[in-house]
Write a protein that binds this DNA or RNA. Structure first.
Lengths: 195, 195, 195, 195
DNA sequence: AATGAATGAGGGTTCATTCAT
DNA sequence: TATGAATGAACCCTCATTCAT
């Protein structure tokens, strides 16, 4: 990758971050290109130099975070660990990512109101790919006898719901540290599935 | 209340329902006064006869659903039951309400992006009042020795998160009935807190 | 038609006229909704109350003038006259219309750069329907032996071209009156086709 | 002219051609500097090295074609031929130029929407210089008794109008060749003026 | 001689809101 | 009560133009 391409890539990343922030604070329709740009001391027009349009920009924001999530969980699944350990690690990773990348992460909840056509399909596809990783871990746990006979899908929904909700209440100034939260969540949720 | 006032009240309720629907489908900024009105075969102008402005209308939508939720849980708390039973009932009620009143219920998740000033404060206050009901039940359960030594706040967050997430995936055409979901959720979540 | 509908219709006509004017002076891309509106002391927004968007508005401008032209020529063709008389009348009518409705008439020349899809097809269809009326008159003239053996299509093109070019140079302040022009044109063009 | 200047001149010509093309396809406002440049695998910025701005570029496009037209007709007028022959040659030349240089030629129709001030005046001046050549030929024909007593100006307008309209319908894939069209046009138009 | 990047003005469009009727 | 009509602010997006390199 040439120097120039690197610079462009870097700028794009900056814009994606800014977009994620604004998106997180204002929601899709509330987020204006103007504000996304001005936080970087750029003008609207410049953003259009890097991204085709608003939907494209916001779509890529989604992609970034989904990609990271998927890589993380797939790496965990590939480990030589027991399902219990895998589930704990997946929960901890998800929470830490959700907290440390709060703006980016908070966005992926309601793509329906935002995207249409191919973009929506792609996002839904990747989201469900991510979800199925949890299913796989749960299934393995049940088969190996580590987990009790649970309803896989509903259990996955409980776990994801509990974790994603963190966005709604977490504040870095709160009493509990990121690590404590991840720790407590994984313990509690594991208790729910263990025999 | 005079007949006239009753009629007005009824109309307001209709509008609130319509607003909730549109809000649910399109999100705050995507929901237009035009559409809210036209679903009732009214015109935009008429809606303004009943509500001061969009924020006011949406605020009242929130209020309706929060009120119902609060009444329900307070009624449960007043019952002469064990914390375990109370928690189960609270979970079941919440889920059934969330599902049967999906449009109205789905809205309450991100008030920050929507409201400001007094309205926001009022909503946050009531939401946290509702949340504290769960805390109280959990606390009572721990004190009475029914629940294990849990982190009250985080546990409450897990429970609420898991339940509110239902909005994201529940469909009346899905495999599981409302009752099954409520049943499985309460079992799983109870397993998490019970000794 | 109710009074209200009449009023709307009237307003639409006003807007169409204004649009034709601006279109005539500035061309499609040069014509702004702002200016179309401001000439009627309206605001851009109001125009959107009557027309879906710019293309729709400009499309209807085209339709108005094409409709008038077609009605006129079809009426002439239905007359019990010789081809020579019909052709003369068609020429005179076209010119008088082109002059008296200059702004509206000037527009129909380059729809390709303006419209797309269905709109374009519809316009092209009606334009060619109009053109074929001339063909029919010419054909009849040849068959009846009034006109010499001419190339129908090219002759029609000469006639239409000569007439539409009037837009480019006619000014009400010029030496020749509308009637003189129509008179001279029909004489000259008839001379071209007569035996 | 130095080699360097020649190279610049050549590049300018290329750009003018490209500009004419785009202009022809999209109209003045529809033609973007971006597209004019990209067809030559250049960037917008480079075009500005050769031309001051868009109006300047488009103005020069006009000039090129008007110059060619003028040279051609002036050469014809200088010939030792009868007015009839001159008129026929002028018509044939005009048509062949209009067809073979379609993009460039199509542009000169509506300068009013495009230019202002000096540029517009210059163009109008040259256009009318060209038109007057036809007048001169016609006048000569009348004086010499070859043409009937025609209205010079209106006749010229008919001829120019018929010829310029070719832009609107000519296609290289059509039934008639360039030569046939030129032939038929000159015959028909001559018939109109001949005694 | 060329270009990548940035800008800002302007245009199309939407929509909450108002107000006379 | 209800609504038709109008408004204006705000938003997305395009594009001519500039300028450092």
């Amino acid at each position: 990758m040439s120097l120039r391409e690197k610079k462009i890539e870097k700028k794009k990343q900056e814009i994606l971050r800014s977009a994620a922030e604004v998106l997180y604070e204002k929601g899709y329709h509330g987020a204006t290109m103007e504000e996304i740009a001005s936080r970087l001391l750029m003008t609207k027009g410049s953003v259009y130099y890097y991204f085709k349009n608003k939907e494209d920009l916001l779509y890529q924001v989604h992609m970034v975070i989904i990609d990271i999530s998927l890589q993380t969980i797939e790496e965990i699944m590939a480990r030589d660990q027991s399902p219990t350990e895998k589930l704990r690690d997946a929960i901890v990773s998800h929470i830490e990512l959700a907290i440390s990348e709060k703006p980016m992460f908070a966005i992926i909840d309601n793509p329906d109101q935002t995207f249409s056509g191919e973009h929506l399909q792609e996002i839904v596809k990747l989201r469900s790919k991510y979800a199925h990783c949890f299913d796989d871990i749960l299934k393995e746990g049940v088969e190996k006898g580590e987990f009790s006979k649970i309803d896989i899908k509903l259990t996955r929904m409980i776990i994801l719901g509990a974790m994603n909700w963190i966005q709604q209440w977490y504040s870095p100034d709160g009493e509990r540290s990121k690590e404590e939260i991840a720790q407590t969540f994984s313990e509690s949720l594991l208790k729910m599935v263990l025999k």
